[in-house]
Amino acid sequence: MTALLSITGVTAFYGAVQALRGVDLEVGKGEIVALIGSNGAGKSTLMMSIFGAPRVRDGKILFDGQDITHMPTHEIARLSIAQSPEGRRIFSRMTVYENLQMGAAVAGYAGFEANLEKVFAIFPRLKERLKQRGGTLSGGEQQMLAIARALMSNPKLLLLDEPSLGLAPLVCKQIFETVKRLNEQEGLSVFLVEQDAHHALKLAHRAYVLVNGAVTMSGRGADLLRDPKVRAAYLEGGAH
């Protein structure tokens, strides 16, 4: 399998604090890859560093064979990588519709109407809220909007940082099913950070465990799900 995203030896700092300590990770074309780890492990930092914010200090990031390590953030976005970031980051003084337009802009609004129908099919709630300001949506609705916004640009690689956060279990399940369907039907590659390790590992083809800024384990999702160390740290107690 050819790697769509390849991260090697990446380190990142916030001032003097080191958040990533030499991370190696790959997402293949057509793969769903999950990243799990406890709070503060550096998962969101890794997601954002793919976009150069924060900029990595050492190491290399390749997307589709192209070195993007030092590329400006907005240019990386133009390579058809989309992110639904931590904290959702909805434009709160823009309407739902305008937020979706913002998502589509980078792709020159290619297939805008079709994409709109697609995200409405996934999140019918958004269609009802189209004229409402982003800031007045409920937390769960904002999460839906963040994912929908990312899908508006026809991405090849979708980065999802805790998509299930704040969502009702049913909606959560629906999102995971959507990710799976987009992956199977459209070949969308997905790199996903998730607190809900159980569901993430079940969904993902492969997964990585991040501890204190370094990858400590990786393998097939199903294998990690059975691994006693993973179970002890991330599944038992919180498991369903």
Partner: peptide, 9 residues
Amino acid sequence: KMAALLGVD
């Protein structure tokens, strides 16, 4: 920052 993630220079 979010604008940049969406390709805005």
